[in-house]
Nucleic acid binder design. Structure first.
Length: 509
RNA sequence: GGCCCUAUCGUCUAGCCUGGUCUAGGACGCGUGCUUUUCAAGCAUAAAACCCGGGUUCAAAUCCCGGUAGGGCCA
């Protein structure tokens, strides 16, 4: 499984293997989702494997429900993993809390080789030193007090149960002749850090509790990860991890650090300015196609003017070289546009199926109240106005209600008098009442010709059909914006339509 | 505070590597118009940007140097 060269040295795998490694300490973040997406696309494109690993070494903050949510939401987006936990609860070797023994082995190795050591400094001591260093204009860095402890002292302190952590010795492990750690990042080019400025980092709280930096390095090696594609916030972590790799004689994977997703004020995307949990977008009625399309364009573009992509197309056209270096503002208006676009693209059957839960959830739609056909017609006349699936509720509620409640004033078109509004409604009632063939086109033709006569009689401009149609539309919808009165009447049916007109006329008495 | 990263319309970006075709292109949003009973959708159209300063060059958004600003990480 582990690749080695002739001299027994560990070498980077030839096939592409990438991973997404979220911590189940909260809902899956949109930033994380995008990282997963980019990893997935990179894997697909290179005929490699996409591995999902749950990083739950922080047992305090990790919860099973968040793991479940991560799996569920990734699946919803269409991002399938080749290796990783089963959706039905078998986590295999892809959950860090199940790999403590493995980390322990490597921790022991580092300790034995004196590449790591126990540290007994207290939080307070550390904080004081940090303050002092910063006031002198230095980078806060551990001063290595505990490297000078003799093995006997360490033994004694451990035996007495004195609180301790395990630190990784940075300088001794830097490559010979230089304190620089250099690596090539697929999106940023060559990046260089000075190892002398790095303090000895804590890699474990104890033998049973490894910390992030350490567990990642070990897992990436054992899982033979070829490319580490992650958010830019990890860039400064990279030299530390490389040093640990070198100490353990691991190969060095290729890195690619993705630009951050930003708030409108260009700070790292956070809860402050709206939803950051993918699940929230899911619940509010964003389509996975729209989210994927939106996210991929935040930090990447194909170099052509094409802007609409399916996941499958992206897997073909994606290229990591074209990933942007600068952070990108999460612009919800663009997401809304894309979502509306994909809503309009959906088949009416599918869209109706997607809308129904929202209608049921609010109690508007009662089972058996509507035929499938009616439901589809309602969705059809509302879809152009929808930005999110949840919009269906606001846009179509009047179809489901028995009684509409609205202000009488709303019935008035421009400067019509009350009696004219009433006349218009009564005329509509009469004309529609006489229609035998309840059909949208028929109603439209009949009403259009009547509207012109009505205008002539009342002295209104002949071409402005609003004098007839606005009061009718409001009577049927109770809203200042809605589909056309004919579309509504057609769905409502003769009886309900006439009843609503009648109710509106009564308001004017 | 130290280190690192970044910089083209309000936003996402094309162009930069391989200087001239850039009077800087597209998309979202915003404005206007068409269509229209309303709101959408659709179509058309306008406004809108090369962070600053120096250098190299016949010519710089593009190459070099120096600033500035923003962000990330370290606790």
């Amino acid at each position: 499984m582990i690749k080695k060269n002739k001299t027994g040295k560990n070498i980077e795998p030839k096939t592409v293997r990438v991973r997404f490694a979220p911590s189940p300490t909260g809902p899956l973040h949109v930033g994380g989702s995008r990282t997963a997406l980019f990893n997935y696309l990179f894997a697909k494109q290179n005929k490699g494997k996409f591995i999902l690993r749950i990083e739950d070494t922080d047992t305090q903050r990790s919860e099973q429900k968040w793991t479940d949510e991560i799996l569920e939401e990734l699946k919803w987006l269409g991002i399938a993993w080749d290796e990783g936990p089963d959706i039905d609860g078998n986590f295999g070797p892809y959950k860090q809390s199940q790999r403590i023994d493995i980390y322990k082995k490597y921790l022991e190795k580092l300790l034995e080789e004196k590449k790591a050591y126990y540290c007994f400094c207290t939080e307070e001591e550390l904080e004081n030193k940090r303050q002092e260093q910063m006031s002198r204009g230095l980078a806060p860095k551990y001063d290595r007090t505990c490297t000078h402890l003799s093995p006997e002292v360490v033994e004694k302190k451990l035996a007495s149960g004195e609180p301790s952590v395990i630190r990784f010795k940075i300088e001794n492990n830097t490559p010979r002749g230089t304190s620089k750690v250099k690596f090539t990042d697929l999106v940023r080019g060559v990046v260089e850090f000075d190892a002398n400025l790095l303090g000895d980092i804590v890699i474990a709280k104890n033998m049973e509790a490894p910390l992030y930096h350490f567990a990642v390095v070990v897992d990436d090696f054992l899982m033979q990860i070829s490319h580490v594609i992650r958010g830019e916030e990890h860039l400064p972590n990279t030299p530390r991890q490389i040093l640990i790799q070198q100490a353990l004689d691991f190969y060095q994977p290729t890195y690619a650090h993705l630009p951050l997703m930003l708030n409108t004020d260009r700070s790292k995307l956070s809860k402050r300015q709206g939803d950051v949990a993918l699940a929230d977008y899911h619940k509010n009625g964003y389509l996975p196609e729209a989210i994927v399309n939106f996210m991929v364009l935040l930090g990447w573009n194909p170099g052509t003017e094409k802007e609409v992509f399916t996941l499958a197309q992206l897997a073909k056209e994606f290229s990591i070289e074209k990933v942007q270096k600068a952070g990108a503002v999460f612009n919800i208006q663009r997401l809304d546009f894309l979502n509306g676009f994909y809503i309009r693209e959906k088949s009416i059957e599918k869209l109706t199926e997607l809308c129904v839960p929202y209608l049921k959830e609010t109690g508007l739609l009662v089972i058996g109240q509507m035929t499938q056909n009616q439901l589809q017609e309602i969705v059809e006349v509302s879809r152009n106005r929808m930005k999110k699936l949840s919009d269906i509720v606001e846009l179509s509620d009047f179809f489901f209600k028995d009684k509409l409640i609205f202000e009488k004033e709303l019935l008035r078109w421009q400067k019509m008098g009350d009696s004219d509004v009433k006349d218009a409604l009564m005329l509509s009632e009469k004309i529609l009442g006489e229609i035998k063939n309840w059909d949208l086109k028929v109603m439209e033709t009949e009403m259009f010709s009547v509207a012109e006569k009505f205008n002539l009689e009342k002295g209104y401009p002949e071409k402005n059909r609003g004098y007839m149609l606005w009061p009718l539309r409001v009577a049927l919808s109770g809203k200042n914006m809605s589909p056309s009165p004919f579309e509504i009447a057609n769905i409502l049916g003769r009886e309900k339509t006439l009843k609503r007109i009648y109710d509106a006329i009564k308001m004017l008495n």
